[in-house]
Amino acid sequence: MAPAVLIIVVLRLWPLLLGVNFSFTGDGDRNGTAVGFDNYVELLSDPLFRTALGNVGLLVVLLPVAVAIPGLLATFIYLRVPGNRVYRSVYFFPAVLSPVIVGAIFNLILAFDGPLNTLLGTIGLGPVDWLGDPGVAMFTVVGVHIWATFGMALVVFLAGFSTLDSALLDAARVDGASLPQTIWHVIIPGLSRTIQFVFVTTMIGMLTSMFGLLYVMTAGGPEGSTYLPEFYIWTQQGQMNRPALASAASTVLFLIMLVVGLAQMSVLRRAGRED
């Protein structure tokens, strides 16, 4: 027990405090001196950081999609679409690949003359500059992230389904409920805990595990359009040698995560009560 406590306290909780404290000191010439909220002011006026925050907003908007896809697929698998056992293993497999591997693979797939544009070309669409167009690149990266992780949420949903009372589903079938009705009135209320869990973990995943993809696929570009807070922190720390500014960004990211977690929980709890 003791080594575990020591490691967690020294290398997790202590750095958190250290980082917050650090974010109120200066960089470079002003190294170590207290500068109040200067770093935070600078952050908010930095267009790159604003883009990063805007992209967080985009992630929040896309979150329901990222949750609905695995949810719907899990529903189909649960309702025994032909071949459902195979799908489970196939869909889950990208979840074990490193974001770096996924990003590298998709660099090939999404190349301007790569397979996806070729496929679109055969049906008369495109080509799209998936990673080079500032208006498209962020959506591309999020899409790849969803490709890589929906299997994880799918497995969690399936575990939730196994706790669902199948008598309710039978009753719905006897009453002649359609599939959308069944999903809305039986499955969503029955799985509210699972759905809540998937919402929170998916959002946390989007905020904290897209670094590998960004690093390999876009490096924050084009025109800084694919920055996320985690990538911003890394750039300021590693490339720009601005650790105190990076700490301020870290603190902001931590606050975002707290807010997201709490907000989603309370929203879903309220939704659960109305049923």
């Binding site: 997790r12 958190l16 904290t208 985690e230 720390q237 870290s250 931590f254 707290l258 977690g261």
Partner: peptide
């Protein structure tokens, strides 16, 4: 405390941890 630590992503403590 463990659960709380679970919620701290690496990105948030990366700078001070690198310094330590």
């Amino acid at each position: 405390g463990c659960l709380a630590a679970l919620l701290i992503p690496f990105q948030v403590i990366m700078v001070p941890l690198a310094r330590v």
